[in-house]
Design a protein around this nucleic acid. Structure first.
Lengths: 141, 141
DNA sequence: CACAATTAAATTTTACACAATTTAATTGTG
DNA sequence: CACAATTAAATTGTGTAAAATTTAATTGTG
């Protein structure tokens, strides 16, 4: 009789732990450039596309305005982004990288490599993990 | 020239998304029994062992007192647990299931099965994901 | 054109999560 | 025994997350 409610029987608990562990590994690396993990995600999105609406950023990261509005205000305080209301549609807020924000990308270049090293796992395992996770993410309607 | 800082190149972003998605799938199921996901984890640990110290629970779930103290006070308000100082060591707080807390396990029995269905993924994929994640979790020193 | 419906952010509330500090109790060593 | 070091929780502060509500602007239909 195996108890399906045993913590080590749970399928989701390891993923919850891994997600927290990964963010903990990022923390010292991101701390060096003054970002938190969610802030880093926003910056990644902006480094790919200099100026985007709050809505667009939210869709790419699955975050809503309740999370993004204060986060973006913190990035603005750090002078990494500028927030401006769209003139075509006053409801829309455009987030644009400052020069400082764009230049921060240089300091972030080493992070992916440092993370692979910090995780102490083979590229093969990382790759199959990523593919499996993406497959499962896509399996939802 | 692939840009290692592209969001879809990141290995950790899919895991971050999956962890959030899983908690989102749990939410309606756990809402039915009045728990959040971290509260559910604490209850899982207590259903396996009726009475444990805050410290023990924290080690099992990788959560510190800053998170657990208020969470456990909420479980106490719901009359699912009792918090008592140990008489042998006054620094230690014992968390004990109430009758109500123990009985809640019956209402939770169906959740693992409902989750597998909600995730809409084959058992094979879930199993290999879990094993890979555990392997990676263990690969740290 | 009017006005209901929709949309985009912001705000509010509740609840983690973690770092750092504080408080109180216990333990180890001289 | 004394007292520094350690340990366990609690507290404080900062920063996500998500649900629900609010505000303001825009769009669609009669």
């Amino acid at each position: 009789m195996d108890d399906k409610l045993k913590i080590n029987q749970q399928l989701c608990f390891p993923i919850y732990l891994l997600a927290k562990d990964i963010i903990a590994l990022y923390r010292p690396l991101l701390n060096a450039i003054g970002l938190t993990y969610p802030q880093y995600l926003v910056m990644l999105v902006l480094w790919e596309n200099h100026s985007q609406t709050v809505n667009t950023i939210g869709k790419k990261l699955s975050l809503d305005s309740g999370t993004l509005t204060p986060l973006l205000k913190r990035l603005q305080q750090k002078e990494l982004v500028i927030r401006t209301r769209s003139s075509e549609d006053e409801r829309v807020v455009n987030i644009t990288l400052t020069n400082k924000g764009a230049l921060l990308k240089n300091n972030a270049q080493c992070i992916p490599e440092q993370m692979v090293e910090a995780m102490n796992v083979s590229i093969e395992d990382l790759t199959s993990l990523k593919e499996l996770v993406i497959k499962i993410l896509n399996s939802k309607k």
